[in-house]
């Protein structure tokens, strides 16, 4: 019953988002970006509303969502750790940070820890190449990070 209420709310809110755009197919990615922003992922119910409103088949919407790395189908962890794997960061050892994150949290990129607290993303260039290697926890950027510093920062979030 509670689930249904959530569904109704998502549907209503998606309709509100859609109302801001022309009802044309080419608006799909713009709409998805806003839905992603709002929920941290793109709920199924939102997809159904978008499909009906913009007359785009569900399979096509799913195809678009899974094509673009910014769009996700499930909520991320409370603390989403994005590790930059752009070339500049890679050259400065960001792979080691990613390996460490996987080892500590026992999840792969794109997954969420069972308690919902952490998730990992391997991202392409967050644009802070001057600070390489870079990782982010939600919107907070950490630059010039060693594995040791990385560990300390993760510890902080673990205790939060």
């Amino acid at each position: 019953m509670e689930e249904k209420c959530v569904d109704q709310r998502v549907k209503q809110e998606t309709k509100e988002i859609l109302a801001k755009y022309p009802q044309e197919k080419d608006q799909l990615i713009m709409v998805l970006n806003e839905v992603q922003e709002k929920y941290g992922f793109i709920p199924k119910q939102a997809q159904i509303v978008i499909s009906e409103t913009l007359s785009i088949p569900m399979a096509e919407i799913y195809g678009v969502i899974t094509f673009y790395s910014r769009f996700t189908l499930a909520p991320k962890g409370k603390y989403n750790i994005s590790i930059c794997l752009g070339t500049a960061c890679y050259v400065k050892g960001s792979q080691k940070l990613l390996d460490r994150a996987k080892e500590r949290l026992k999840i792969e990129p794109g997954q969420v820890t069972p308690d919902g607290k952490f998730s990992i993303d391997d991202v392409r260039c967050v644009g802070a190449c001057g600070l390489a290697p870079v990782f982010m926890v939600n919107d907070e950027v950490y630059g010039n990070a060693t594995v040791k510093e990385f560990d300390e920062i993760i510890d902080q979030y673990m205790n939060m």
Binding site: P57, M58, A59, E60, Y62, G63, T66, F67, S69
Partner: peptide, 20 residues
Amino acid sequence: EIGAIDCIERGFESCISTTY
């Protein structure tokens, strides 16, 4: 004009499938 199937995912994972 059904569109039950489409290309999903990207890279080596790309395939023709349905929603979800």
